[in-house]
């Protein structure tokens, strides 16, 4: 589905504080699979995720989606791809404070001008699926960590993306909530979504639905291996 060809990402290029976050990465991420990127802090996991999800552009190299080069596209097209193809779950959830859960979930669909009743119904279904229908009218800041993550997942799914990208999704969750999250991932995989996650958490790497584990160190991919299901 997605392939990276010798991709590099350098922040503050040419300055004193230059950071080479991703170095000459070439890999393929298959459709209908669950891929986990692991590695120590500062190894470039999140940077790689933002490159794959069209949240940033590579400093060099090419990214292809279904064979088409997308890394050089103008911003408008990049946004369109991001909206249609990817759903994001951020480490700190990044919900907008001061607006309701329902509004947060519907937010990615606003620019599409979707019929309001249909959009509201879809958001309601997602909240139902994630077992938080009673929270729709609450403001985002009133939610617990687990609830906030479910809202972030509902938001990621509102435009029915092909791929769900999650950055350290369990970093702020306890064991019970981590298990609940894995159940949700299992459900999404069952619905045919491609899952791509970064994680420090061994409970994620060892989960039964994980197909591929990518290991990163100092911005480089050091290993790509199939998950051990034994």
């Amino acid at each position: 589905m997605i392939s990276l060809d010798n991709v590099c990402k350098t922040y503050h290029e040419g300055r004193e504080n230059e950071v080479r976050a991703v170095r000459e990465v070439s890999l393929e991420i298959g459709a209908d699979r669950t891929t986990v990127i692991r590695g120590p802090s500062g190894s470039g996991k999140t940077s790689l995720l933002t490159l794959i999800g069209c949240l940033s552009r590579p400093s060099s190299g090419r990214i292809r989606l279904g064979g088409e080069i997308i890394s050089g596209l103008p911003e408008k097209f990049m946004t369109g791809i991001r909206r249609q193809t990817f759903g994001f779950i951020f480490q700190r959830f990044n919900l907008i404070r001061g607006i309701t859960v329902l509004e947060n979930v519907m937010l990615p669909a606003y620019p599409l001008g979707t019929d309001h009743a249909a959009l509201k119904a879809r958001a309601g279904e997602l909240l139902e699926m994630l077992e938080i229908p009673g929270k729709a009218a609450m403001n985002a800041e009133q939610l617990s960590g687990g609830e906030a993550q479910r809202v972030a997942i509902a938001r990621a799914l509102i435009n029915d993306p092909q791929m769900v990208i999650a950055d350290e999704p369990t970093a702020n969750l306890d064991t019970r909530l981590t298990m609940q999250f894995l159940d949700i991932v299992r459900t999404l995989r069952g619905q045919g979504k491609t899952m791509l996650m970064t994680s420090h958490d061994p409970r994620i790497w060892s989960a039964d639905m994980v197909d591929t584990i990518i290991t990163m160190e100092d911005g480089r991919v050091t290993a790509v291996e199939a998950a051990d299901r034994s």
Binding site: L55, E75, K76, T79, R82, R83, F88, F90, N94, I96, R97, L107, P108, Y110, P111, R155, N159
Partner: peptide, 18 residues
């Protein structure tokens, strides 16, 4: 906070124009 909000909106699929 506003810069973060703009970042979130763009990340979830809003265009610069939106």
């Amino acid at each position: 906070e506003e810069r973060r909000e703009i970042g979130i909106l763009k990340a979830v699929g809003w265009e610069t124009g939106d």
